[in-house]
Amino acid sequence: MSTFPILSRFQYDCHVKVVEAEAAQTMDMLAEACAYHSIGLHVADQPGKILRVRPTTDADDAEPWPRDMTVAEAGIKYFDSIDIYFTDQSKA
């Protein structure tokens, strides 16, 4: 499966990072791939929280994509900037 780069804007991280995504990945899998490069390196883990993925917008107010939606279904493209952010279990 070919991969392509997306821009991981991971909540609380200092840097916007280039992470490889795959079209068949679900949002949970994509969040995990991004978390690998932030949590435990530059961002503290938040046990019990769920990571959600949404498109980057100016006001940080976009709705998250469904957790089981794939990268292809979400229409995420080469070098798109996405937000990965912590949510409470109840909101996930």
Binding site: Y12, D13, H15, V18
Partner: peptide, 21 residues
């Protein structure tokens, strides 16, 4: 880190801003 930061197409410096709260 095992990845790279995205680089600004003008200043060529890693795109970064305040972390944390």
């Amino acid at each position: 880190p095992e990845c790279i930061p995205i680089i600004c197409n003008m200043c060529q410096i890693p795109i970064s801003n305040r972390p944390g709260k």
